[in-house]
Amino acid sequence: MQVNWPERFYCRSLVRKIAQWREVCYFRATRPLPPGAKVLEIGCGDGGGAGIFSRAFAPGLYHGLDVDPAMVKVAARRRKGALRDQNALFLQADAERLPYRDNAFDAAVNFGIIHHLPDWRRGVAEVARVLRPGGTFYFEEIYPPLYANPVFKVMLAHPREDRFHGPEFREALVREGLTLLPGFHESNLFILGVAVKTARP
């Protein structure tokens, strides 16, 4: 599901980039990646998160996907600037149907995209599918009290049915063989965490 203009404006703002920088610092402190890793970002937006993540982790390959073709074009232009030294590729694709084989990536990154998916469980399953065993899922997600409150509910475009809170999201990770590492941050509004692909129970 594409974001609407207020959320697009926020996603491209300095405030959002500062938040992503702080999140990436937490990701790196929690579970570093070896240099040259293959990384997939779902919902890459304008590519700002890709630049921040790439500077912190120095991946060998970085693929960013988004359903919004306008955002993909913006991210591709960024590839000629901040990401010019990285092996980065941005393309239009759906996070519920990732166009990759199983076990293709060492890491996946999600800066608050899964709650936009109509079938969010399938999005989690697809992330797990394309991660290699031992691969890392870095994520930030927000819960309905933040985006579906009386004010934001009318301002922002989100699916209205089958929304997840903390227990449902964490259960979906476990179901797909993603083990949440200690030290994650969670409230009734959001979760920031790192999970490792082990095996489905």
Score class of each variant (00 low, 15 high):
Asp68Tyr: 05
Gly45Trp: 03
Leu83Lys: 06
Pro59Ala: 09
Pro69Glu: 07
Gly60Gln: 06
Lys80His: 05
Val67Glu: 05
Ala70Trp: 14
Ala95Tyr: 03
Glu96Ala: 15
Val72Lys: 02
Met71Lys: 11
Leu83Gly: 06
Met71His: 13
Asp102Lys: 07
Gln86Pro: 07
Asn103Cys: 09
Gly81Leu: 15
Leu98Thr: 02
Gly48Ser: 14
Pro59Asp: 08
Asp66Tyr: 01
Gly48Trp: 10
Gln92Ser: 09
Tyr62Gly: 10
Asp68Met: 07
Gly64Met: 04
Gly48Cys: 15
Gly81Ser: 14
Leu91Ile: 03
Asp85Met: 11
Ala50Thr: 11
Ala56Val: 01
Arg84Lys: 13
Asp68His: 10
Ala93Gln: 07
Asn103Trp: 03
Leu98His: 00
Gly60Asn: 07
Lys73His: 12
Leu83Glu: 07
Phe57Arg: 00
Asp68Phe: 02
Ala50Tyr: 06
Val74Ala: 11
Tyr100Gly: 00
Tyr62Ile: 11
Asn87Leu: 06
His63Arg: 11
Ile52Met: 12
Gly45Ser: 12
His63Met: 07
Leu89Val: 13
Leu83Asp: 06
Asn87Tyr: 02
Leu91Glu: 13
Ala76Trp: 01
Asn103Pro: 04
Pro99Ile: 09
Arg97Glu: 14
Asn87Asp: 12
Asn87Gly: 04
Gly47Arg: 01
Lys80Asn: 05
Met71Leu: 15
Ser54Met: 09
Leu65Arg: 01
Asp66Met: 01
Gly48Tyr: 13
Ala56Thr: 01
Phe90Arg: 02
Glu96Thr: 13
Val72His: 03
Arg78Pro: 04
Pro99Cys: 12
Gly48Met: 14
Ser54Thr: 13
Arg84Val: 08
Asp85His: 15
